[in-house]
Amino acid sequence: MNLITSRYFPWVFLVAVAVLPLMFASDYKLFQFTMVVVYAIAVLGLNLLTGYNGQVSLGNGAFYAIGAYVTAIMMDKWDIPYWATIPFSAVICAGVGFLIGLPALRLGGMYLALTTFALAVATPQLLKYKLFDDYTGGVQGIVINKPDAPFGLPLNPDQWLYLFALTVGAILFILATNLVRGRIGRAMRAIRDQPLAAEAMGIDIAMFKTRTFALSAMFTGIAGSLGAITIQFVAPDAFGVPLSLTFFVGMVVGGGASIGGAIMGALFIQFIPNIADEISKAAPGAVYGLILIAFMFLLPGGLASLIRILKRKPA
């Protein structure tokens, strides 16, 4: 079979493109691309929950915050190596996600959006709370160190970090792709489109919904961990409503229920605000807002659907 027409070609191409910055980009550009990977994982997490399962969450920033703080606290207080914190943050976030998924079962559509929005508003306050001060560092946050490349690899810390994030991201993307292609993915979509029919077919809606919540929280939490290591700093005010809305924007722009859309969404939320920022400090918000509305009207399936439409047209 020809390489170009193979169904693995997009992924081979993607990996090739993804490795390119390692060789050519400056340290700052590399940092930006590392953040793209981080955002892509977070947007993918939200996409599993909202795009595939139809549970609209505006509060995934809370899971990102938990992941970031788990990593920061473990590195700062107990000197645990950065890579070893990621499984912990995945497990903790999945647990929290599962618990939040339980009341979410009783909330349909708009109410869930509202409650998770409230969660996003409350997150910075909870992180600042005095009782946890000893661990979270309160308003000051926690500063952590950038890891060096192991095994004497000839990479500087930025290059290593990018490669590390990329590897974690690739594993998670493969996991998610296989998941949504299989039985579980079909069940998730069935619950989104026709809950009644899904239940009649023997799908345990409560079980799938809470576990999707846990899964989404796990992805987002891992993104949070990677984000904390990349930025080398966590502080409560970074994890407010804007962060959650950023993920939401990324998901809508990239395209709901699309794995590749998560990458496009991440590129969008990393680079478009930078460009808009040059016009005015307030411009990124306006760009987000207007683009959200425009996408809802013109391209509800996001950029991913645009590619699908272009493909379908005869050349």
Binding site: G54, V56, G109, G285, I293
Partner: peptide, 28 residues
């Protein structure tokens, strides 16, 4: 009005879009 019959995700998206737009235009 054009989105009256759209799914929840679309209305939430538009509301959030309005929120962000008003917020940043005011800041601007």
């Amino acid at each position: 009005e054009p989105l009256a019959k759209a799914p929840v995700l679309a209305s939430v998206g538009v509301f959030i879009g309005l929120l962000l737009t008003f917020n940043s235009v005011a800041g601007w």
